[in-house]
């Protein structure tokens, strides 16, 4: 990993050690340690309020942790003197509610930070943006505005916007939770392709099917700690911890039919 930026995926790893985060007296992360190797896909699962989104947001310092260390590629995110803007250029983030810039066209959403941050020319930024919009299957919508797109299309634009910065790591914060069911598949397909291309991905998700198929490792969190982690087939298909079993039973069989009586 060095300063050279090129268009092939240069994957960076993540190393989190004993991370703690509190809001007032409420400790939401109670000493999390987690490693994502370059090129790996790790899915964070767990009930809401378990701290998985907070953990993800700590990785690019949208939340300031209280203790512990985070290393992202060559950057130590928790070093007070870290060049945060440089670090964030190499970390793409995809939000639950897309957070596209509504006053900019789809293309301009994908070019603005290339031009303002990476100082690329308008034509170069436009080329990169168009390539990434093609990558998510939306090259034909470059001139639209975000509010003219469906939720699934907006989320794919958000992915293209993040990819246009040539990130070495992608963070996904419940990327399909706010989508209509019929558009979820398109977004997951883009993420699957990205994983196959060797992107390092840390994904907070409730899509167990996606986690089982794509993730190298699955991490189950509850109440601010990692309860269980391992290969997807182990954690999702054959969990060992009671809390994991309970959670998966509720998620995989939301109606509880045939469970309450058992």
């Amino acid at each position: 990993m060095n300063d050279v930026v090129n268009s092939t995926v240069r994957a960076a790893g993540v190393n989190i050690k004993d991370l703690r985060k509190s809001y007032g007296n409420n400790e939401v992360l109670k000493g999390i340690s987690l490693t994502v190797e370059p090129g790996q896909v790790v899915c964070l699962i767990g009930p809401s309020g378990s701290g998985k989104s907070t953990l993800l947001r700590c990785v690019n310092l949208l939340e300031q942790p209280n203790a512990g260390t985070i290393n992202v590629g060559k950057f130590e995110a928790t070093d007070p003197d870290v060049d945060l803007n440089r670090m964030r250029q190499s970390v793409g983030m995809v939000f639950q509610h897309f957070n596209l810039f509504p006053h900019l066209s789809v293309l301009d959403n994908c070019t603005i930070s290339q031009m303002k941050v990476l100082k690329r020319s308008k034509s170069e930024a436009g080329d990169v943006a168009r390539r990434n919009l093609e990558r998510v299957g939306l090259g034909h919508l470059a001139d639209r505005f975000p509010d003219q797109l469906s939720g699934g299309q907006q989320q794919r634009v958000a992915i293209a916007r993040a990819l246009s910065m040539d990130p070495q790591l992608m963070l996904f914060d419940e990327p399909t939770s706010a989508l209509d069911p019929e558009t979820v598949g398109d977004v997951l397909a883009v993420m699957r392709k990205l994983a196959q291309e060797g992107m390092t991905m840390l994904v907070v998700t409730h899509e167990m099917g996606f986690a089982r198929e794509v993730a190298d490792r699955v991490v189950f969190m509850d109440a601010g700690v990692v309860v269980e982690e391992g290969p997807a087939e182990n954690v999702i298909s054959a969990p060992t911890q009671p809390r994991t079993k309970e959670f998966l039973r509720r998620v995989l069989d939301p109606t509880h039919i045939g469970v309450e009586e058992a």
Binding site: N60, N85, R86, R88, H97, N99, S113, A162
Partner: peptide, 18 residues
């Protein structure tokens, strides 16, 4: 302006003023 706008911009590496 929703908070997510600032977060998205910062996540793309923009400094606060930008």
């Amino acid at each position: 302006v929703p908070k997510g706008q600032m977060e998205a911009a910062r996540s793309l590496g923009m400094p606060h003023w930008r």
